[in-house]
């Protein structure tokens, strides 16, 4: 038997995009500069008008993504004392694509001492028969501040959702602050039952990490008078952070709940 000249290639998705977009924000005088702003594949990065000393970046989806088999990644780093705001121009729609294989969409955010980062993308829509594994991994220095909002829509109008798994992992000063893995759609046992989503199709979270919350830890509070339309809870975490979790019948009610719990700029 003839030895093969190279080891067999690891199993690759037959089709699918591999792309990593990179953003780096640094402090430059009284402002924040963006020495790295590198789009890739479906990610087209645009510099938006700064807001005081905060730089702003908008991610434009240059093609429909993520599709099954895609391997997408966004890395954003905020250096010491810099302030960065990132949003997306439109909702992200996970679609089935040419293969049944799952897509991955990994977001890795890092904020150094005295830096602030706002990650406020438009909703992610899990279309029928899509299969997406999303991770959002965040590393914060002790004095860094974070504002994150994630919204998920389970299925387009009148269709069931695809498979959607999202892991949100936040470390502060190297210690775990928040670690949540949510799974919806086919293959996620009990996902639409009374413990998890119970018929709601729009789910959102706002996470605020701010050392100032150590001085004034908020109390847990509830929002939403009509459980059928939606409910939200604001929960102080075991650290200087609060998490707002909202469940609603649709995005309209979700926005109302999230705004009631924490109006965003």
């Amino acid at each position: 038997m003839t030895p093969s000249p190279s080891p067999p290639a690891p199993a690759q998705p037959a089709l699918g995009v591999r792309a990593t977009a990179r953003i780096r924000a640094t402090r430059a005088g009284g402002a924040t500069a963006l020495p790295t702003l590198a789009g890739d594949g479906p990610f087209d990065l645009r510099r938006a008008r700064p807001h005081g000393d905060q730089a702003r970046v908008c991610i434009l989806g240059a093609m429909s993504a993520p599709l099954g088999g895609d391997r997408l990644r966004i890395e954003a780093t905020v250096d010491h004392g810099a302030h960065l705001h990132i949003t997306t121009a439109a909702a992200t729609i996970a679609l089935r694509g040419p293969t049944d294989e799952h897509a991955t969409y990994d977001v890795h955010l890092t904020a150094a001492e005295h830096a602030s980062l706002q990650w406020l993308p438009q909703p992610l829509i899990s279309a029928a028969r899509s299969n997406l594994r999303q991770t959002c991994t965040i590393d914060l220095a002790p004095t860094a501040r974070l504002l994150l909002r994630e919204q998920v829509v389970l299925g387009r109008v009148g269709e069931p959702p695809g498979r959607l798994a999202t892991r949100l992992t936040v470390h502060r000063d190297g210690r775990p602050l928040l670690d949540q893995h949510t799974m919806y759609g086919p293959g996620a046992p009990g996902w639409d039952g009374p413990a998890i989503a119970a018929g709601h199709r729009a789910i959102g979270q706002i996470l605020i990490v701010d050392p100032a919350l150590d001085q004034q830890p908020p109390h847990a509070s509830l929002f939403g008078d009509d459980p059928a339309a939606g409910q939200a809870v604001l929960t102080p975490l075991a650290g200087p952070a609060v998490l707002i979790t909202a469940l609603a019948s649709d995005t309209l009610h979700l926005h109302r709940l999230l705004n009631a719990a924490r109006p965003l700029p």
């Binding site: 949510t182 809870v233 929960t235 979790t245």
Partner: peptide, 22 residues
Amino acid sequence: GPAALPAGSAPLLDIAAEQHAT
């Protein structure tokens, strides 16, 4: 490390726990 451990989360269990406490 502990990141290897499962982190399954259920939004309604969190909301309901705070509701129950009130």
